[in-house]
Design a protein around this nucleic acid. Structure first.
Length: 329
RNA sequence: GGGUCGAUUGCAGAGCGGUCAAAUGCUCGAGACUGUAAAUCUCGCGGUUUUAUACCUUCGUAGGUUCGAAUCCUACUCGGCCCA
C-alpha cells in the first residue's frame, strides 16, 4: 500500500489562536504554514484580516538555538515560512477554486522538500474542500450571466432553475430557495447541461489529514474578540488601513463592504454612516456572530463524518502531531 | 413641594377595551450553503402539552370598572421633563 502524504490542518474560530499554534507546530515538526483564509489572501489587508505576520517569527536566546536563520544581537530569530498570504490584490476576485489550486501546489512543494504542511485558517469551506477533496463543477464564474440574473427576483430565479433541472430544484430547502446568490450559481452550472451534485467527493484522496480544532467557551471567546478589536483599532491603526485601501489602492466602498466585518463596518464609519461607538459595537457583535457561524460549519463537517481533535493546550496538539507522524513509518 | 409625561416579553419600541403571548428592528439560539463563504440565506425566540381557531402565566405594584383590560379608573412605587 502506498504511503499517503501527511498534512496537518488546524481549524477554529477567529481570535482562537490558530496561527500561534500552527507556528508552534511548524517549529517543532519542521513544517510550513498554509493559510486557509478567504481574506488573508489579499495584499494590504493585514490588520483587518488578522494576518499576525509577526507571529511567524520566533525569537530565542542565542545560547540554545537549534537552527539559526537570522542572527540579531544576542538573539536569533526564526521565521516560519507561510503560504497563501498576500497572493492577490484586493480588487482581484478570488474564490475556492483558486485557493484549492494554490494550496495543493504549496502542499506538494512543502512535501517535496521533506517538510510538513500545516494548513491553518478560519474559512471552513476552504479547509473542508481540501480535506474532503471536493469534486467541483468544471464551470466557473460567468460574470455577464451573474449580472443579468442579479436583477431578477428570487422566485423568478427559482423558476428558471426549475426548468433547467426540475428534480434538483424541487429538492432545495427553504434557505436555498431564498438565496439569490446560491440560485444564480446553480443556474450557472445547470445551463451548461451539467447536473448538480452537491456533497460530491472524490474518493482516493492522495493526502492523509490530521484535523485539529481549537475551542474556547463562547464567553471567553467574546472577550478575546473585543480585546483584540480594541487593540487593532487603537494601537494598530486598522482604520488607517481601510483609508489606505480606499484612497491609495482604489478599492471601492462597495468592494470593501463585500469583504465584511472590519472592512464593512469601518468603511461605513468612514462614510459617516455610523458613529465611532456604533461602529465598534456593531463590529464587535458581527465578529461574534461570525465566530458562531464558524462553529456551525465545523459542527456540520463533523456531522458529515469528519474527525476533529479538539484541543485546549498546545501540548495536546503536539502530542496528536507526534502520533500522526509516527504511524506507519 | 407643585405640574406633567411615562413604566410593555433580553434591549429598543408599537399596541390604547375583544381578532394580544402582544407589530417591527436588534440581540440571542439553531441551521442551510461543493467556484463570491468575513459572503449569501432559513427557522426559532414566555411556558406546557394531546402542536391546537388548546391551556397556563405575562404588559411597574395593588385594587377597581367591565361579559371581557396591556389598553379605562384609583392609589402606590420608580423614572424623564417643566415650574418652584
Amino acid at each position: 500500500m502506498k504511503k499517503k502524504k501527511k498534512v496537518v490542518v488546524i481549524v477554529g474560530t477567529t481570535a482562537s489562536g490558530k496561527t500561534a499554534l500552527a507556528v508552534d507546530l511548524a517549529y517543532k515538526f519542521g513544517g510550513e504554514v498554509i493559510s486557509a483564509d478567504s481574506r488573508q489572501v489579499y495584499k494590504y489587508m493585514d490588520i483587518g484580516t488578522g494576518k499576525d505576520l509577526q507571529e511567524y517569527i520566533l525569537e530565542f536566546p542565542i545560547s540554545n538555538f537549534q537552527f539559526p536563520i537570522l542572527k540579531f544581537k544576542n538573539k536569533i530569530k526564526i521565521k516560519i515560512p507561510h503560504h497563501l498570504l498576500d497572493v492577490v490584490s484586493p480588487n482581484t476576485s478570488f474564490d475556492l477554486v483558486k485557493w484549492l489550486k494554490k494550496a495543493k501546489i504549496s502542499i506538494n512543494d512543502i512535501l517535496d522538500r521533506g517538510r510538513l504542511p500545516i494548513v491553518a485558517g478560519g474559512t471552513g469551506l476552504y479547509a473542508q474542500a481540501l480535506v474532503d477533496n471536493y469534486n467541483l463543477s468544471k464551470y466557473g464564474e460567468d460574470k455577464k450571466l451573474r449580472e443579468k440574473l442579479e436583477k431578477k427576483e428570487k422566485t423568478e430565479l427559482f423558476k428558471i432553475l426549475l426548468k433547467l433541472d426540475e428534480k434538483f430544484a424541487k429538492k432545495l430547502n427553504n434557505s436555498e430557495k431564498n438565496n439569490k446568490r446560491r440560485l444564480i450559481r446553480y443556474i450557472e452550472i445547470c445551463r451548461q447541461g451539467e447536473k448538480i451534485k452537491n456533497k460530491n467527493l472524490n474518493k482516493n484522496n492522495e493526502y492523509e489529514f490530521l484535523l485539529i480544532g481549537i475551542t474556547w467557551p463562547r464567553e471567553i471567546l467574546r472577550k478575546k474578540i473585543y480585546k483584540r478589536l480594541i487593540e487593532r483599532l487603537e494601537k494598530e491603526d486598522m482604520i488607517g488601513e481601510v483609508i489606505r485601501l480606499h484612497k491609495d489602492k482604489k478599492v471601492s466602498w462597495k468592494r470593501l463592504e463585500s469583504f465584511g466585518l472590519e472592512y464593512r463596518f469601518i468603511s461605513q464609519y468612514l462614510r459617516k454612516k455610523l458613529s465611532y461607538d456604533e461602529m465598534v459595537e456593531k463590529l464587535n457583535i458581527a465578529i461574534g456572530q461570525f465566530a458562531k457561524k464558524q462553529i456551525t460549519w465545523l459542527r456540520r463537517w463533523e456531522k458529515q463524518g469528519a474527525k476533529i481533535y479538539w484541543v485546549k493546550k498546545r501540548q495536546e496538539a503536539e502530542k496528536l502531531c507526534k502520533n500522526f507522524l509516527r504511524i506507519d513509518n
